[in-house]
């Protein structure tokens, strides 16, 4: 089988004494959109920063197309790292305020020493194809509309010729009538350029609609992952179930099922012992407070880290036996 386009193995991200990401493994397959959901402080942005190289991994490894970055030469590492690009949440803030659009778009080519007339022409054509006319090239970021800035940021990312794009809350703050535009564009680009996405969002509707697979995070760990439709319809982890049920809906028939979790999200600096969710879990058992459940994967590609997974789904087969 071909290598996954991105593999994160037992990754740990630390800021001083705070462990934001605690031993997480992820796989992104070619052409796939992997959704990452969870609430603030769960570590999803830290994963994004670690994957794109803005934050070093304290432990664990990152591999692009089967090549481990740690083992590669410096030159090779730069090339591999450049294949992973980040789409920032705030597009205007991600553009240097004193540069024109022309300079901003040519920058990624110059960085790669690939600034030729041919490549530049390709960038301009790509920009044109997503509605950025040449008359915009002499503008500064603050003279662009939100939608235009978003497209400029997107072209810049594409000019680096990535195979993986990490999108951190790409639809945050967008009106619902234009949110679809962006998601449609992202999907078209993915199909056209053979990209894979890691999509981070707190918007469950967006993830549920565009992701092929989903991973749910809670306090620095993955509590559940699996194919989107199956996971949304039959969550196995009580946290996933509560999170999905908290999603506001227009459909009155689904409103009664809401599980309102008691208490606050614990601080990631002092996560509870045992299962990290046990302090808020409606189905907590004595075992949960002492023993941390391992993430086990079954043959359908679903994984859950819970001692007492919800019965709505078939039994879980421990990975140790399966592997």
């Amino acid at each position: 089988m071909a290598h996954p386009v991105l593999t994160l193995d037992n990754a740990v991200v630390r800021y001083d004494r705070l462990t934001a990401v605690d031993n997480i493994s992820l796989e992104l397959r070619r052409g796939e959109t992997l959704g990452l959901i969870g609430e603030s402080g769960c570590g999803k942005s830290s994963i994004a920063r670690a994957i794109v190289g803005l934050q070093p991994l304290a432990e664990g490894t990152l591999a692009v197309e089967g090549e481990t970055l740690k083992d590669a030469s410096r030159q090779r590492r730069l090339i591999l790292q450049r294949r992973i690009q980040l789409l920032f949440q705030d597009p205007v803030a991600s553009l240097s305020p004193r540069l024109t659009v022309r300079a901003l778009l040519s920058e990624p080519l110059k960085i790669r020493n690939a600034f030729t007339a041919e490549n530049w022409g390709r960038i301009v054509a790509l920009a044109e194809s997503i509605g950025l006319g040449e008359q915009l090239l002499s503008r500064y970021p603050h003279q662009l509309s939100g939608g235009q800035a978003r497209r400029v940021a997107l072209i810049r990312v594409l000019a680096a010729e990535p195979s993986i794009i990490v999108a951190d809350e790409p639809t945050a703050g967008l009106d619902i009538s234009v949110q679809g535009d962006l998601l449609n564009l992202l999907r078209a680009l993915k199909d056209h350029l053979g990209l894979s996405y890691l999509l981070i969002s707190h918007n469950l509707n967006v993830i549920g609609r565009v992701a092929d697979r989903v991973a749910v995070m809670y306090l620095g760990r993955i509590v559940e992952s699996g194919p989107t439709a199956a996971l949304f319809r039959g969550p196995a982890h009580p946290y996933t179930q509560a999170l999905l049920s908290a999603n506001l809906t227009l459909d009155p028939s689904r409103r009664h099922e809401r599980i309102v979790l008691s208490g606050e999200l614990p601080s990631p600096a002092h996560p509870p012992a045992g299962c990290r969710f046990h302090s808020r879990c409606p189905l907590v058992q004595p075992k949960c407070a002492t023993e941390a459940p391992a993430l086990r994967t079954d043959e359908d590609g679903r994984a859950v880290a819970c001692h007492f997974p919800l019965a709505a789904r078939p039994a879980v087969i421990p990975q140790a036996i399966a592997g």
Partner: peptide, 21 residues
């Protein structure tokens, strides 16, 4: 506007475009 609301539980085709205004 209501058409733009996403319902992740509805039957959909991943390759289908999302509604916009």
């Amino acid at each position: 506007l209501l058409a733009c609301e996403i319902d992740p539980y509805a039957a959909f085709d991943l390759s289908q475009d999302l509604a916009t205004i």
